[in-house]
Design a protein around this nucleic acid. Structure first.
Lengths: 239, 239
DNA sequence: CCCTTTTATAGTCACGAGGACTATAAAAGG
DNA sequence: CCTTTTATAGTCCTCGTGACTATAAAAGGG
């Protein structure tokens, strides 16, 4: 009840953890760092760090993201708070409450070790083995959140470079959801949603390989998707 | 990067704040407490309190919920984490990170002052004036979250007593969304969703007033709503 | 240079969800 | 007994969308 003066309170350490997701060659990848010291020395973990005294968790997350990815401007990147993780014992050394964030990157730069010496790598989502601390759960929660938000928001463009083809946009959905989508239907749906994407007027084209060159689009002003683009329901759903 | 040993870290106080929502006479209400001391003395605030050393934020939230509402068993109540609020200066006295939760109650008991002397009251959502701290924002976020979750989950039954009529269930949607719904269509949709509600076999009925008595239902085993029950889109949406 | 392969784009068909609406049933009140 | 009120049943039509076919425009191979 905010009667601060009447209760003793325990000091906590507050950290941020980042589930930084991207697409590399059509597959979902996550940015991981290797721990150099105990506990969980040698294990992979989500990047993160302490919240400094005069910054918010969002600010700390963006600062850590810049440090870990070596990206110059992280100001335009999609960063969204997931939730806080506060189980006692989630860090064996001290009482740590962590605020987890999900970040979405288009073209993934090779991470360069960051401020501390531990190495950072892009790891395919499915190969992100047992992580340190409770980071497996955080990563799974982030994946689920992103998958859900793809349905109702225009956030898929955050995975794409400034100009992209509809095929690339579709790959985002397929990689995150793990399902194949019908191309003509996907195209119809995306183009029918006003403000989702808008064609680049310069009739530009992008050739990645053999077929007919695809038209280029950029993200539109819309943020929500009405009606939503629902992922195909899983088979064997309990009645 | 969890290099705890290499960084100095500031100790934070960690609290929970609760947006406890319920329906009273068809209107959305929120549980508020009156602050007895500075800062914001005399202002209303969301109930909450410090997280104790050996409990998680969820546990702390449930404990506070029991204390504030005087409810005996809060084990079955819907409690969901909203997010963490960590802006520096959100509490003028110290660095406080708060983990906010949303709780949904069916029959609202009159709150009895709780453990500390400050009074607690159910306040109509629209009349929840300027609150202390950043609680206006937390409350708005909670409202938005609940409104969104009504679309895709079966959570509306958490507002209802163990047995309820479809009219009462519809009132939940109308109160949270602030829109009127067509009764036959709502009924068709709810009954067509397997596992959302199931009829009470004792052909029971409930008479609140004049008309034909309504059949009683109870919550079913389903948790998700596929396809979702979308709220009517707002007028004047930007294209 | 033709023909196949590959990818993008256009279009068709049918079913189902749901918005708008009407009709009937079962209670209370005057 | 008739009106009012609320619950429930059913109808019509439109739109979104899954499944599918067809055409266009490139590269590659003989």
């Amino acid at each position: 009840m905010h009667g601060y003066d009447k209760y003793a309170y325990e000091p906590f350490a507050v950290t941020v953890d980042l589930a930084v997701l991207t697409l590399r060659e059509g597959a979902l990848h996550v940015l991981l760092v290797e721990r150099g010291q105990e506990p969980y020395a040698g294990r992979w973990a989500l990047p993160g760090g302490f919240v400094q005294p005069e910054e918010s968790a969002e600010t700390a997350a963006r600062r850590e993201l810049a440090e870990e990815t070596g990206l110059a401007d992280v100001s335009g990147l999609h960063l969204e708070q997931l939730r806080a993780y506060s189980e006692p014992g989630r860090d064996p050394r001290m009482r740590v409450v962590s605020v987890a964030f999900t970040a979405l990157l288009p073209d993934p730069p090779e991470p360069h070790g960051g401020s501390d010496a531990a190495q950072a790598r892009w790891v395919p989502y499915d190969a992100a083995g047992p992580l340190a601390f409770d980071h497996d759960r955080i990563l799974a929660d982030a994946h689920e959140r992103v998958g859900a938000r793809l349905e109702y928001s225009c956030l898929a463009t955050a995975f794409c470079p400034p100009q992209f083809t509809l095929g690339e946009l579709q790959q985002v959905y397929e990689a995150v959801w793990g399902t194949a989508l019908d191309r003509p239907n996907f195209r119809r749906k995306v183009l029918a949603t006003p403000g989702f994407v808008e064609p680049v007027p310069g009739a530009a084209r992008l050739t990645g390989g053999r077929g007919k060159p695809a038209a280029l689009y950029r993200a539109g002003p819309a943020t929500a998707l009405h009606p939503p683009l629902l992922r195909p329901p899983r088979e064997g759903r309990p009645a």
